[in-house]
């Protein structure tokens, strides 16, 4: 927990400095037709400065306050979080390759099985979610979802 609570303001600080630096390199205000006084770099530059300042304050407060004892992730929560996170990454990356129905079926089924549900519940839920959403969204509502090699 302690590491994360310090890493976040550090990351934000870097983001702020980076944004301010990038904004400085944007073209200056154009005169002429638009009469724009501030130019495209003004707003992001000062946002970058403000983000750096506020995250520096947060970092300082995190360093000063007494460290929190609790771990970032309770040990019994690690497995479900890792499973779900890895599963979601794969699900998104394979969405267009496998197509919505197959990808969803595999994702829901495997996640439930790995999280300790029985095969019947896993398969049943996977089929209901995959096919049900296909029927409702694609067939009924006309929302287009990635079709995949089998046409669905």
């Amino acid at each position: 927990m302690n590491l994360v609570s310090k890493l976040i303001p550090v990351g934000l600080l870097v983001l702020g400095i980076f944004a301010a630096y990038q904004a400085r390199r944007l073209p200056p205000a154009y005169g002429g037709m638009s009469q724009d006084v501030l130019g495209p770099g003004f707003f992001p530059f000062w946002l970058g400065v403000a983000i750096s300042a506020v995250s520096a304050v947060i970092l300082l407060k995190e360093v000063v306050t007494r460290p929190r004892e609790e771990p970032f992730l309770p040990p019994e929560g690690r497995w479900p979080v890792v499973i779900l996170l890895a599963g979601t990454v794969l699900y998104v990356l394979l969405l267009e390759t496998l197509g919505f129905v197959v990808d969803t079926f595999l994702f829901v089924g495997l996640i439930l099985w790995l999280l300790g549900q029985g095969p019947a519940v896993s398969l049943g839920t996977a089929a209901v979610v995959g096919l049900g959403m296909y029927l409702v969204f694609v067939r009924l509502l006309g929302v287009s979802l990635p079709p995949g090699p089998f046409g669905f």
Binding site: T88, V108, I111, L112, V121, F137, V143, L145, P146
Partner: peptide, 24 residues
């Protein structure tokens, strides 16, 4: 059982984000 709902919510949000502009 909550585990049953978790992947379903993931599917809904991924599909929702995808379908807004139809791109990955």
């Amino acid at each position: 059982p909550y585990p049953v709902l978790m992947p379903a919510i993931v599917v809904f949000s991924v599909v929702g984000a995808y379908a807004v502009g139809n791109n990955l």
